[in-house]
Write a protein that binds this DNA or RNA. Structure first.
Length: 605
RNA sequence: UGCCCGAUGGUGUAACGGUAGCACAGCAGAUUCUGAAUCUGCUUGUCAUGGUUCAAAUCCAUGUCGGGCAACCA
C-alpha cells in the first residue's frame, strides 16, 4: 500500500471560526455536531460536503458527530434509504472520522446524550457508550432517529401548550394559507388562537388518540401573525397523519414538523453546532424561539447555515435524481454517472478524493457554481498515486510485425507505478501480432501527429520501436491491418534503447489479450447548467455519457485485486465494476479519463 | 417589492483596518518510453458611489445585481 499523503493542514472556514471561538470563550467545553439526512433518497456529493464538514469539525475539535435520520414524515421515508445512507456515510468517513461517528445502542431511545465524568459520551439513564469507535466490541449500534423522540417531543408540545405558547387550530390547510398572508402582507390570527390551555391539552391528546382524520387539526405555535418572517406566523408544529411509519409503525398518528422536531432533537442529543444549508436561514428565529419558549438549559445548540454545493454538468436535488432513476434515464441510484455517493463509489472514485474535494471547495455563504474540473482534477491526482499501470486497447487495430517469428513470445518488463517504485514490475508478453488503438494510427496525419503513420515509427511502450511498412485495407477501403517491422535493438534495455521517436503508444499481444467489456463514462449532461433558463434537464442528457466497447486487455488484467485502481496507460483510470464484473465476464468502468492535450489541440483546429 | 442572506480574476476560495494570495481552468515553454504526471513562466480580480481613517476587499451609508422565504415537506 502506498503511504498516505502528508497530513493536510486542518481546514479553516467561518463555521470552524465560530466553533473555535465558542471553545475559547468557554461557551462549550466539548463539540457535538450532527448529520441529519431525511431518509427519502440517496445521498449525493452535496451531502458529502455536509458530511465532511460536520464530521471534519468533530474530528478537528475532538468532538462527535451524530448520524441522525430526520424521519418525521412517514409518507416519504423508507428503510431502503436508511440503509443506503448508513452505507454511504460509513464508506465516506471510513478510516478518517469513524472515531467521531455518534451512534446509539440499538433500541436505546428517548435517551439524552450527556458527557460522563470520564469525558465519554453516554446515553443518560442507560449508561452505554454510544460513540462507534468507543463501543464495546459486539455492541449493536444504530443511528439516532428523530422518530425515537416521539414521546419526548410530545411532552415538549404539552409543555408549550401549558405555557400558553401553542394552540390547537381547526383551520384547513387552505384556510391556513389564506390566514398566513403574504410576504408583503401580514396574516390574520386564527379564530382558534384564543383557546384555553385546558381545551388545547384535551384536543391535542385527542389528536394523538386518533379521534380526528388527517388534516382536521394542527398544533400551532403562538407567535406573531404579523411577523415579517412568515415562518414566525404561528407555524404548524404537529399534523395528523394516519400513516404507517417505517420505524414506529402505527404507534403514532400525529407527527411533528421539521421546525419543531429539529431544534429539539439537537437539544436532546447535546448538539452544540447545528450546521445546515442556506435555505434554513429564515427558520433560525423559529429554531431559537422554540428552545427559548421551552426554557431549556444553556448551552443551547446554535444553528449555522452554509451554501450547498452546486456542481457543473449535473443535477443535485433528490427530486431530480429520483426522476432520473424512475424514468430509467440511468440504471439506478448507484449508476456510475450519478452524482450520488453510491454512484461515485461504483464509478471508482475513492472516498479520499471526495474528502479532498469537500475541503478544496471551502465553506461559505456564497451560492456559487463549482467547476466540475476541480472534482475531476482531484480524482485524477488521487488515482495517479495509487493506480497500477496496465496496457489496454479499446478500439483494436492489428499490427503484424513481420520480422518476429510466429509463436515467439518476448517477455518485456513493465513498471506497475512510475510514481511508486516499491510497486514493482510485471512481465508483459510481446509477439508477432499486436493490437494498437485505431486512434494511434493515421493514414494521412497532420505534421504534429506523433503516433504511427505509413512509413513512420513509434515506440510500443515497454517493448521497442516499430515501423509501419504496409497498410492493409478491405474492399470498402477501411484499414483492417498494419504490417511492419519491430526494431528489436531499440528494446527497453537493448543497445539502441536510447533511440528517440516522437510517440510512444500502448498495445497488447493479440494472442494473449483478454476480452472485456469496458464502459466509458462521461458527464451525464452536455451543458454545465442543465436547467439554465428553465429548460428541462432531460433535453440535455449526454448521449455519450456511457459508451460501451469491447476491449483487448493485457493478460495481467485477468486477475484483479478487489478495491485496486488501474490506469490504462494513456487512456484513463479504470476498475472492475463492483456489480457487474465477474471472473468469466470482466467489466471495467472508466472512473475518469487522463487529460488529453492532443485532443485539445485537435479540437482547436 | 415585506423580511433574511450574499457579492474578491473565467470558476471556487484566502486575506479578520496595513504587500490582494491559493487552487482549478486557460496560455507559453522545459521534460517525458503515458501528448499523463512533473517543472518554469504568464494572463486575468476587490459590484458601484459616497463616507470614516495616516491607511478600506475589510468599518458605515446608499444603490446595483444575485440567492432564499408565503408545504399540515425537510
Amino acid at each position: 500500500m502506498p503511504t498516505a499523503a502528508p497530513a493536510a493542514p486542518e481546514p479553516s472556514d467561518f463555521i470552524r471560526d465560530i466553533v473555535a471561538a465558542d471553545i475559547a470563550s468557554g461557551k462549550h467545553t466539548r463539540i457535538h455536531t450532527r448529520f441529519p439526512p431525511e431518509p427519502n433518497g440517496y445521498l449525493h456529493i452535496g451531502h458529502a460536503k455536509s458530511i465532511c464538514l460536520n464530521f471534519g469539525i468533530a474530528r478537528q475539535f475532538g468532538g462527535i458527530c451524530n448520524l441522525r435520520m430526520d424521519d418525521t414524515n412517514p409518507t416519504k421515508e423508507d428503510t431502503e434509504y436508511v440503509d443506503s445512507i448508513r452505507r454511504d456515510v460509513d464508506w465516506l468517513i471510513g478510516g478518517w472520522a469513524t472515531d467521531t461517528l455518534g451512534l446509539k445502542r440499538v433500541g436505546a431511545d428517548d435517551g439524552r446524550v450527556v458527557v460522563a465524568d470520564d469525558g465519554r459520551v453516554v446515553v443518560a439513564g442507560d449508561g452505554r457508550v454510544v460513540v462507534a469507535g468507543d463501543a464495546e466490541p459486539g455492541t449493536a449500534l444504530e443511528p439516532f432517529y428523530a422518530s425515537d423522540y416521539s414521546g419526548r417531543l410530545y411532552s415538549a408540545a404539552v409543555r408549550l401548550i401549558e405555557a400558553g405558547k401553542a394552540f390547537v387550530c381547526d383551520l384547513s390547510a387552505e384556510q391556513m394559507n389564506e390566514f398566513r398572508g403574504t410576504p408583503t402582507l401580514p396574516g390574520k390570527d386564527s379564530p382558534f388562537r384564543g383557546r384555553t390551555a385546558a381545551e388545547n391539552l384535551d384536543l391535542f391528546a385527542r389528536m394523538r388518540a386518533g379521534e380526528f382524520p388527517d388534516g382536521a387539526r394542527t398544533l400551532r405555535a403562538k407567535i406573531d401573525m404579523a411577523s415579517p418572517n412568515v415562518h414566525l406566523r404561528d407555524p404548524a408544529l404537529y399534523r395528523i397523519r394516519h400513516a404507517e411509519h417505517h420505524r414506529t409503525g402505527s404507534k403514532w398518528c400525529i407527527y411533528p414538523m421539521y421546525d419543531f422536531a429539529h431544534p429539539l432533537s439537537d437539544q436532546f442529543e447535546g448538539i452544540t453546532h447545528s450546521v445546515c444549508t442556506l435555505e434554513f436561514e429564515v427558520h433560525r428565529p423559529l429554531y431559537d424561539w422554540l428552545l427559548a419558549a421551552l426554557d431549556l438549559p444553556a448551552p443551547l445548540p446554535r444553528q449555522i447555515e452554509f451554501a450547498r454545493l452546486n456542481l457543473g454538468y449535473t443535477v443535485m436535488s433528490k427530486r431530480k435524481l429520483l426522476q432520473l432513476v424512475e424514468e430509467d434515464l440511468v440504471t439506478g441510484w448507484d449508476d456510475p454517472r450519478m452524482p450520488t455517493i453510491s454512484g461515485l463509489r461504483r464509478r471508482g472514485v475513492p472516498a479520499q478524493a471526495l474528502r479532498t474535494f469537500a475541503t478544496a471547495i471551502g465553506v461559505t455563504k456564497f451560492n456559487g457554481l463549482t467547476d466540475v474540473a476541480v472534482l475531476e482534477h482531484i480524482v485524477r491526482t488521487e488515482l495517479n498515486t495509487v493506480a497500477l499501470r496496465r496496457l489496454a486497447v479499446l478500439s483494436p487495430l492489428k499490427v503484424v510485425l513481420t520480422n518476429i517469428p510466429a509463436g515467439e513470445v518476448i517477455e518485456v518488463e513493465a513498471v506497475e507505478n512510475p510514481g511508486d517504485p516499491s510497486a514493482g514490475t510485471r512481465k508483459v508478453p510481446f509477439t508477432r501480432e499486436v493490437y494498437i488503438d485505431r486512434d494511434d494510427f493515421m493514414e494521412v496525419a497532420p505534421p504534429k501527429y506523433f503516433r504511427l503513420r505509413p512509413g513512420g515509427e513509434v515506440r510500443l511502450k515497454y517493448a521497442c520501436i516499430i515501423r509501419c511498412d504496409e497498410v492493409v485495407k478491405d474492399a470498402a477501403g477501411e484499414v483492417v491491418e498494419l504490417r511492419g517491422t519491430a526494431l528489436l535493438d531499440t528494446r527497453s534495455g537493448g543497445p539502441d534503447s536510447g533511440k528517440k521517436v516522437k510517440g510512444t503508444i500502448h498495445w497488447v499481444s493479440a494472442s494473449h489479450a483478454i476480452d472485456a467489456e469496458v464502459r466509458l463514462y462521461d458527464r451525464l449532461f452536455t451543458e454545465e447548467l442543465p436547467e439554465k433558463d428553465g429548460r428541462d434537464f432531460r433535453t440535455v442528457l449526454n448521449p455519450r455519457s456511457c459508451v460501451v466497447v469491447q476491449a483487448k486487455l493485457e493478460p495481467a488484467l485477468a486477475r484483479t485485486v478487489p478495491d485496486t485502481r488501474y490506469q490504462f496507460e494513456r487512456l484513463g483510470y479504470f476498475w472492475p465494476d463492483p456489480k457487474d464484473s465477474t471472473a468469466d465476464r470482466p467489466v471495467f468502468a472508466r472512473t475518469i479519463s487522463l487529460k488529453d492535450a492532443w485532443a485539445k489541440e485537435t479540437a482547436k483546429a
